[in-house]
Structures are given as C-alpha cells and as structure tokens.
Write a protein that binds this DNA or RNA. Structure first.
Lengths: 369, 369
DNA sequence: CGGTGCAGGGATAGCGCTATCTTTGCCGAC
DNA sequence: GTCGGCAAAGATAGCGCTATCCCTGCACCG
C-alpha cells in the first residue's frame, strides 16, 4: 500500500515495493510466521519496503552514501523514523566485518585522571557515531591482556591503550590484528608506536628541580601502585637528585598498594618517623599528597615550612587543599582528545605525521611548596 | 587430514570432515579466494573441520551444551585452542538474537560512588562470561535516553540503570524491548520495578535526626547537581526538620552545578556569610563536605563546635579529613552486587521473590558532628 | 547515430554463527 | 521381533545487514 511513487517521475520501470519485497518474500518463506527468532524490531527490509526502495538502497541512504539521490534518501530516512528503525549492530558488523566501535583500556576508574581522559575520548568519538567500549585493567597485565583479547573479538575499528606495560602475548595479538592502536599517557618507551602523552621521566625530574629551587635538600619520593608510569616519575626524580648530588636512596618509599588518601597519610607518617630531617616530598599521585597534607595538619607538621609537599596530576581537589597543593598538572583531556583524533586518522587509513605527540605537563606552584 | 576418528569406536557412518566441510565447500564456492571480506581469524567451521565434527557440534561443544559427548567436546576445545579460535560475537548475536552483554548506565564516573558500583557489577558479571557496557549519562535525561536507545540496539541480555529519572520515551523503549532491567540506588518511586538501593528519603531524614540529636537547631541542606536522589535526600531532611519544628526554608542552598570539592567550599562560604547563626550543615554529597571542611579550616571556622558538618556517601577520603567527616555510608558495592545478581535471575527467566531490595545505609559518626 | 561513460539504482551472495528440524542407531518393552 | 523413545549427532535455513557485481537509461562524443 505504501510507496506508490507519485513524487518522482521515474525514468525507469517503476519499482513495485510490495511485489518485490512484500508479497513475494512472504510467499517464498512460508515458515515466516512460526519463526520466532526475530527480535520484533523493524528491519532494514521493512524500512526499504515502506520507502519503496530496495534494501541496499535503504542501507546506503541511512549510511549517508552519496550515490543515492537526495529525494530517495529523504524518503528512506523518513520511513526509518516512522518505524523507529535502529540498525542492528551485530548484523552490520557481521556483514561488513567491522564494527562501529572503539575500545579503550585504562588501568583504573578510581583515579579521576582516567575518567577525564575517557570523557575527552568520548567527546571526540561520539559525534562520529563510534561506540566507546571501556575496559578497566586494574593495573593488571593479565587483565589488560584479557580485555584486549576480548575486545579484538569485537573487531573494533581502533584501540586506545594506556601505557606500554603489556604482556608479550597481548603485544602479539595487537600486532596480528592489524587494528590501529594509539597509546596514551607515556612516551618514554613508545618507539615506533603511535602515542600521545608526556615524558613521565621528565615530569619526575621537573618535580625534583622545583623542590631544589625551593631550597630543599633532603627530598623523598613516595609512590604507590608501582605501575610503570609511577616508576618512571620516580626514576626521573631520582636522576635529577643524583645530578644535584642530593640523592639518598633511603628517602624513597614505594608500595604496590593502590594509591589513596588514607594510604598517603599513612606513608607520610612512616616517612617522617623514619626520617625527621626530610624537607621535601614528591608524591607520585595527588591523592597520596592529599592524605599527607591532612595527616600533617593532624600532627601539627607545618607545610611547607618544615616539609614541602608536591603532588602529581593536579586533581581537581588539589587547589582547595590546606595548604593548597602544588602539583604537576597533566593534560589528560588534551591527551584523550588528541589520542582519539590520532586514532581517527589511523582508522581512516591516513598516516600520521607526528606519531609521537608530547603534550607536556605544567608545574602548578601553590602553597604546599 | 585431521580427525580420523580412531579414538572413538563409532556406532555410525564415519563422518568425513574433509569431504564434508573441506573440499566440497571450497568447490561450491569458487569465489572464495577473491573474497577478502573475511577477517582472517579462524572460524567455527575451521575448528569443526580440525576436530572432525560438524560445525553445529563444534558450536555446541564450545558453548558447553551437554548433548555433546565429552570426548568430542574435548577434541573440539582442543582444536579451538590450537587455532586460537575466539567466537565472533557479532555472528553469535545475529544468529541467536541475543548478545552476551549487559549494559549499565550511571550518571557520572567522576563520583567514586558509581565507580565502586560498577566494580561490583563487573565482579558478578565477568565470571558469567557477560560483557558489561558502561554508559555515562552525565546526569542528563537526554543522554540517558540516547544511551538506552543505543544499548537496546545491541540486544543486551539485561540492563542496569541508575534511579528512575528518565524520559517518557526511554521508559517506553525499555518496556517495549522486554529486556530485563534492574534499577539501582533508589527505592522511593520504584513501585512495580525491580530495584536495589535504599530510601534516599529516609537517609535524608536520618541526617536531620543525627544533627538534632547532636543538639543542633539551625540546620541547612546543601545540594548540588540536583538529580532526583539529591533532591529526595533534601526532602527527607526537610520533612524531619519540619516534624521537629526546626525547618527554615532560608537554610537551603541548591545549585545545579556538578558537585565538587571546590564548589563545596564556595557554597559553605556563601551559606555562612548569609546565615552566620547556622550550627549544622548536611551536604548532599561528600565532596561538597570535603570542600566545606577545607574552607572552614582556611577561615578558622571551628568544626564541629561552631558548625557541625555531615556528608553523604562516605567516600573513601572522608575518614581522613580534618576533622574526620561524619557521613552517611551508602552500600554501593552491595547494591551493585545485588542488582547484578537480581538481573542474572531475571535474565534466567526466574521470578524474583523480593523485587525491591532495601540495602539500607549507615550513619558514620566521626569528628565533624 | 552507434559507442561509451557514468550515475543511480538493484540482484545476488554471503558474513559466522545458532535454532530447529531430521536422522541415525540403540535400548528396552510389549 | 517390532516399535516407541531417547540420545547424539548432522542438515538446513536463516539472523539482518552490506560488499560486490550488474543493469539500465541518459548524456555526451566524434
């Protein structure tokens, strides 16, 4: 009943939608009524029938492929809207051997840092019609590998991964898949890979230089979680101190426990008890530093007079701590955005002029140093 | 070459894998070599051929369907392992009209609360082989609707949604889909729905009662974001104050801005400037309370002597604030876990004895009150 | 005025699985 | 024995799309 093409003065044999895709189809599939496997949602065929075109034309129209006359495309879009049609991503992925999906693996969602990165990625990908799959590896190489294996099965258009710390077999899978991949956050060992981040090593050095410039001489590094990036920051810090002949290996407190405010306070207490002479502490993550500031207040330790405290990442709360926490601000939104854009380019088959993008970092000097 | 069934004394005609699924298949599809649409990954057919069984048997074996003899199943699993076979989820979803996916929509990832809920959900779903899709609605009904529409297209096995605040059309889509759905966090308007949470209304009342019990008489409520749950907490607080004849509508500060530490400090300042006589403040979320405590310290406002401060959610950092923040602890891990389990039951077609599960809340009394 | 190029469509044929019959052989029962 | 019933496979037929080829009509060409 639909689709008598009165609007268009056709140049060809009129296409009879009901005959072609309605009645005949129903006749040649007599078991249609007993087959209950379908989802009940409208299919592309129904849209096509309603618009009076063939299914492929409908497919092309909805995908915005230009070889469809605008008038037809419009009819198809309208039919889709009227029926409430939504593509079946599984069917699309199967037929085209590619999904509309991008997978991201971050090591934690508890760290605000990665949440902000994800937001930036979303903001780039969503407008392109790409679904973002979020995986949390919990800082575990094995989970990271599982997630990658799992996601590769979905044939994502691209992958965004955090850092380079990865099992050998995960690396092989990635390579074998041929799926474009951009690495976020670190640069220091990203030779030959596409990566967007900053040098954790240099950031650690910058921390040391700032404390030295503030006249500090006995400085400690406190790191938790002990992921590669934290270790690199520590290493950068260490080297800069060595260079200034101020390095003391005893002034280093590392623990694999996950970073948290509570832990920061605890480590701060331990450190001061063991080394009361300390006059500066660099924390590998801001939440540790927050805990330290709170613990200092509780103990009456004066910050920064007695000990300067420097954080890392510049989480939103840092500027409001008492005293306001100095921290190294990391450009996670920019990293997320740029990494997403780079991935988009790779997905489009373009080669990227600058495969390694250093987004830098910024020292935020506040009251705590 | 593979699969001469020497191991099993067959009762039937021997199944010749190469003839059935190898050579003949290749002959009847002469264009196989020029078709480059395939992904290159091994398919179930190849696994079946290698194991010397039919594809359906291989499918059944890998899905653990018991009607396959253990010996065959073992051969299939081994073949799959040798080939590095991973199912194509798109093909599976298309063929079975269902995915191995559960979708979750939370209003924010910036709030630690929801991250912890997600972790609990993951912990339940992953072992069942279910993929968890995470959607962030940013406290927007429109985004919530978009996410739901989008996820429904994936034919998830189930949905976990936060709260009941939802557009009419989202509600209709959910109902029409017939996909099981569990609502998390709130109970107050969940009549007829499956929900796991606690009464935001009663939690708000408990906050008021605690402050009253502490001898406070001029109490304010500070809420940001203004999502339904925050408003309900405020409403519960208000009603309890009214009942005690202590309600003063001027002592309420609501803002649609997203909750944050910085905002908490700012609102605290505004409130005290406008109403210096206040002796108790209930913050709708802990990060606001954190900001207030820090701002109080900066201003020399003594907490709790001058003003008692009570938070909500009991975020991990609250116990370490100065003074330690009293807060209403919400059982988000338990909610996530229980909601996931309830959804699992619904997905299995079971009816749930208690469709509304009140997980309660716990007042954590610390130094700030 | 026949060739020939180019659009705008359509027909055909799967993508890689699984739901649903069928078939086969075997067992026990009447 | 014959037959019903059962268990363990296999054959068949799509799921809902899209890649790929193909067809048709028209414009343009010399």
């Amino acid at each position: 009943m639909v689709g008598l093409r009165t609007l268009q003065p056709s140049r060809r044999l009129p296409f009879n939608p009901d005959a072609a895709y309605g009645a005949i189809t129903l006749m040649t599939t007599p078991k249609n009524d007993k087959n209950t496997r379908t989802t009940g949602r409208p299919t592309l065929n129904e849209v096509a029938r309603r618009a009076g075109v063939s299914p492929i034309t409908a497919s092309r129209a909805l995908r915005g492929i230009p070889s469809v006359a605008e008038e037809l495309a419009q009819r198809v879009r309208e039919a889709a809207r009227e029926l409430g049609y939504v593509v079946n991503p599984a069917a699309r992925a199967l037929a085209s051997a590619r999904s509309q999906t991008v997978a991201v693996v971050v090591p934690s969602l508890g760290n605000q840092l990665f949440v902000e990165t994800l937001e930036a990625i979303h903001a780039v990908m969503r407008p392109k019609g790409l679904e973002v799959l979020i995986g949390n590896s919990h800082y575990s190489r094995d989970e990271d590998e599982d997630l990658i294996r799992n996601y590769l099965a979905y044939q994502p258009r691209g992958l965004l991964l955090t850092g380079f710390e990865r099992t050998e077999s995960a690396r092989r899978m990635l390579e074998a898949s041929g799926i474009p991949c951009v690495y976020m956050m670190d640069l220091d060992s990203g030779a030959g890979l596409h990566c967007v981040g900053f040098s954790q090593l240099r950031a650690g050095a910058a921390a040391a230089e700032h404390l030295i410039a503030r006249g500090r001489r006995r400085m400690a590094f406190v790191g938790a979680q002990l992921d590669q990036r934290t270790l690199l920051r520590g290493e950068g810090f260490r080297r800069a101190l060595q260079q200034a002949c101020l390095y003391n290996p005893a002034f280093e407190l590392l623990t694999p426990q996950p970073s948290s405010v509570g832990l920061g306070g605890e480590l701060f207490g331990q450190l001061l008890a063991a080394h009361p002479q300390l006059d500066g502490i660099f924390f590998g993550n801001d939440d540790l530093a927050h805990g330290a500031l709170l613990e200092a207040m509780r103990r009456g330790v004066r910050i920064p007079e007695q000990v300067a405290v420097l954080g890392f990442n510049d989480l939103p709360a840092s500027a409001f701590m008492v005293p306001r926490l100095s921290s190294i601000h990391t450009p996670r939104e920019a990293i997320g955005r740029r990494a997403a854009e780079m991935l988009l380019a790779l997905m489009a088959g373009q080669s990227v002029a600058e495969p390694v993008q250093d987004m830098g970092f910024e020292l935020m000097v506040r009251e705590s140093t």
